[in-house]
């Protein structure tokens, strides 16, 4: 349903889409049922000359079951949705699968700095690749991210991943993702962060293994010395 409009580019995007579909079916059923009954009653019981309204207190259990049964059913469906929702949540936010690589994401008013580990595959070494507003990841690799902020709250959101996480100054928040589709997509800030909030777009570039390797090489210190962009 969602993937018709927004590509599904992470390993867990499908799970979230499925959950959204489940909720849609359940609440859609209730919504149309309730609206249907409402409109039916409005049309059926429009005032007619000489017909008095019925006197129904609704206190009698026999009458009450007309609201009691739907109400138990809602509870049942709620439990179903809760179980589905928590399962997805635990997979996306609580479980942390083994990482192939780690990137650091630093938000500030109003830009993103992405620190890639560079050829040695480790952060905090001189060959780290720091880029503003551009994140390069490899398709099929599991990444951990370390999310930080230099000033106010921001939120790192990649709609094609169905991923969203706020950045809080003074903390490092960890999460993970695994891209499953090559291409370039939007990264958005979704927590209001001041007047430039709308002007901090970034791009995530998901590359195949070869392209990624070539990109890392072009950014390595040796390449930079011969005139790569800083």
């Amino acid at each position: 349903m969602i993937s018709k409009y927004v590509e599904s580019a992470s390993s867990f995007a499908g799970d979230i889409d499925h959950l959204i579909w489940l909720v849609t079916v359940i609440v859609g059923f209730w919504f149309f049922l309730a609206e249907g009954v409402l409109f039916y009653f409005i049309l059926r019981y429009t005032a007619q000359d000489g017909v008095k309204g019925q006197y129904i207190t609704g206190e009698d259990p026999k009458q009450k079951r007309w609201v009691a049964w739907p109400h138990y059913l809602t509870l049942l469906f709620d439990v179903w949705i809760i179980i589905a929702a928590i399962t997805v949540w635990q997979h996306v936010k609580q479980a942390m699968p083994q990482a192939d690589s780690t990137v650091r994401i630093i938000a500030q008013q109003w830009a993103w700095t992405f620190v890639h580990p560079g050829p040695d595959g480790k952060l905090d070494t001189p060959d780290d690749i720091k880029l503003v507003d551009e994140l390069h990841v490899e398709k099929g690799k599991t990444y951990h991210f370390e999310l930080q902020s230099r000033d106010v709250l921001h939120s790192f959101s990649v709609p094609v991943f169905r991923l969203k996480q706020d950045a809080i100054p003074g903390r490092t928040i960890r999460g993970w993702f695994k891209a499953t589709m090559a291409g370039g997509f939007d990264i958005q800030c979704t927590e209001i962060c001041g007047i430039g909030h709308a002007l901090m777009p970034a791009r995530i570039l998901i590359e195949n293994h070869e392209d990624q390797a070539a990109w890392v090489m072009s950014k390595s210190p040796a390449a930079a010395a011969t005139g790569g962009t800083p």
Partner: peptide
């Protein structure tokens, strides 16, 4: 949708 934590990851904000 929004109360379901899993779906809220996408819909939040």
């Amino acid at each position: 949708y929004l109360g379901s934590s899993g779906a809220d990851i996408y819909f939040h904000d």
